[in-house]
Design a protein around this nucleic acid. Structure first.
Lengths: 207, 207, 207, 207
DNA sequence: AATGAATGAGGGTTCATTCAT
DNA sequence: TATGAATGAACCCTCATTCAT
């Protein structure tokens, strides 16, 4: 079974502990990533200026450039850390037999991943236009297509294939709705996962 | 039954068909909207500059300001024209009984609307971050929630509700995939619609 | 006989006439070029900032960008206007017989050109490092080599060839010295020209 | 007679010859100068950043500041080492009688100096704009004028004086042409020297 | 003898917007 | 119905430099 990562891209939580605003030495790079992701997710990539990020960290813009080569590089670095679990999942899934069991596992794991790094995925979903011409090639779309390829049977009827991709989209859309609707998030997450699994099950059998 | 609008998102072609209320020449305003939407959808709102739009139309930036008050105003005006059908659909749907028949009709009609104005919806989906703080209040999200309210039963179990919203998301995601996958677009659209209807049917009965 | 151009790249002289600092409408582009050349020649290309140019003209930096695409473009545009005479001279010379008479004419004309646009040539000489990677291809060097090709006989002994290129270098170096040495500039220019002609004459006969 | 210095402008080779006062290892200071000169000559002073120099040496920028006080200081230090021979030559020449023999010796020696430290002189020639406001006061120009004062007779006719300064300019221009023209460099150097001597001879006699 | 982290100043460039004509 | 000229604010980025370690 695949276990979670728990890579916290946590919002304001930050590095717990005693000293408040003190310069926690050495972790600037990480702090930049955290604040950047937070702002990118909140306002979008283009509308977030480096000035803003710097100000929030109480450093100068130039300091950002000590740690990252470009604005894009900040984003890319965040991705590298946070999308690794997906790559691993895809990698793992590619070599498994296409049983229903496996597909279920994949969806379950994917749901966890999405939850763990929800700000990032929220960002991806809301900034697709931006992502499209970001060297971080495999875009959102590409990654999803890889997963899709594991879930669906290549020669099944169209509706069957649509069901699989609908499962993925449902989970993504979930992120989006989970945030501000009422009700227990974890309960909602499970309901979403259930529907997704249901869709894939129908697809698996209906083929 | 609900009939189409035929809101053209086409380039210079304009609104063909019966009783055009637009004039042939001197339709700069319309041309601006067309080109703008095209570019907004292609590159995103922030990354499309007025200079670019003006250049493509072979007019000056200042000319755009004769027709629209601000950049945002261009976008807003496009929305007003192109999202009216949805508003009408919502308005109509609100007063109908929650029968399966009605829900089916709504989905069907929604599928047509999405297809008719696909560049706009592609734009909305890919620029949610931008949309969020655009005065055109009812964002993407709000509109979807209104539709959702018609499809779901307020007190049904969570999974049931998820199925409804999954139906909508599936259709939106469709836009996204229709573009570059192989196969006949119309056939795919129908498959997507079928799955969506299926989801809502399950929800309707499962409640 | 070849006559001068008189393209004034004149320092502060400016567009004569009544109104002092008034906005002489329409000539902004020209004024930018004038001030830019002045500053480029005085301080070097890299060390002259657009802010500086703008300030001196009492406009904003952005205004410069209305008239020119980039900083480099400002320089390029100056070149285009001011080096045309040289190109014409080269073009003309290429098809003439290699008589001493012709060579003399070329040097004489070249001397005039240099004098007419002396700030530009001073700039070129003092900013060769900069010029080297400026798209304005034919650099200083290339242009000189073209002229050199007209003056020298391809198969003559090395010393003879050196004499020709020495003639050109002498004239260029002249610019440089004319400025701040004592004595009547015109008299000095003539002396320089005489030595240059002398060198080429020796080369012509000595071959 | 004047003897050579052998000031190496070479890469890591260091000061060969007799009593080197430099240490082999820990010669970072020297390495900085070498790389800096190389880059300054190649790209110009302003366009060469300390980051670039540091990177090429595989040290940090801060390390440069251990060895030199400022960027300008790096350049200055290079000059001090490499232009000493000229100063010596000027010093020596000032007190000699103005015989043709002496003048010839001066030119010959100058030619050697130029060749020995050609990157430096290439740099000087191509970055005059920069040099002008570098505290290394005596600029290129000043040094040349000192030499000129030795070669020329103060009260001779203008053309005669021009010939002397033309001799110097010819040699400098040589550097410039020697690099990329075809033919044996040493042979060319000699031809250039010959022409220069010729000019000074004419001046000496024609006076 | 050198580094890691940061700064302040400034660079060139682009943008949405304005307004007299 | 448009344009030409310009602006102010902001942008990303780079630089020489500093200083505690």
């Amino acid at each position: 079974m695949v276990t979670g990562t728990g890579a916290s891209a946590g919002a304001g939580a930050g590095t717990g502990g005693g000293a408040g605003k003190q310069h926690r030495r050495g972790d600037t790079r990480q702090r930049i990533q955290d604040v950047a992701l937070e702002l990118f997710a909140e306002q979008g990539y283009e509308k977030t200026s480096l000035r803003e990020i710097a100000e929030r960290l109480d450093v100068t813009k130039a300091a950002l450039y000590y740690h990252f080569k470009t604005k894009e590089d900040i984003l890319t670095s965040i991705f590298e850390d946070l999308t690794r679990p997906i790559d691993e999942l895809v990698e793992w899934g590619k070599d498994q037999p296409r049983t229903l069991e496996i597909k279920r596992t994949i969806l379950t794991r994917y749901s966890e991943i999405l939850t763990d790094a929800s700000p990032l995925f929220r960002f991806m979903q809301e900034n697709q236009a931006t992502m499209r011409d970001l060297k971080t090639g495999e875009t959102f779309k590409d990654r999803m297509l890889s997963l899709l390829d594991i879930l669906r049977e290549p020669d099944s009827p169209m509706t069957t294939q649509v069901r699989c991709f609908s499962a993925l989209f449902t989970m993504h859309g979930g992120m989006f709705v989970l945030k501000d609707a009422e009700g227990d998030p974890e309960e909602k997450r499970k309901a979403i996962l259930e529907v997704a699994i249901d869709l894939v099950t129908q697809a698996h059998e209906g083929a």
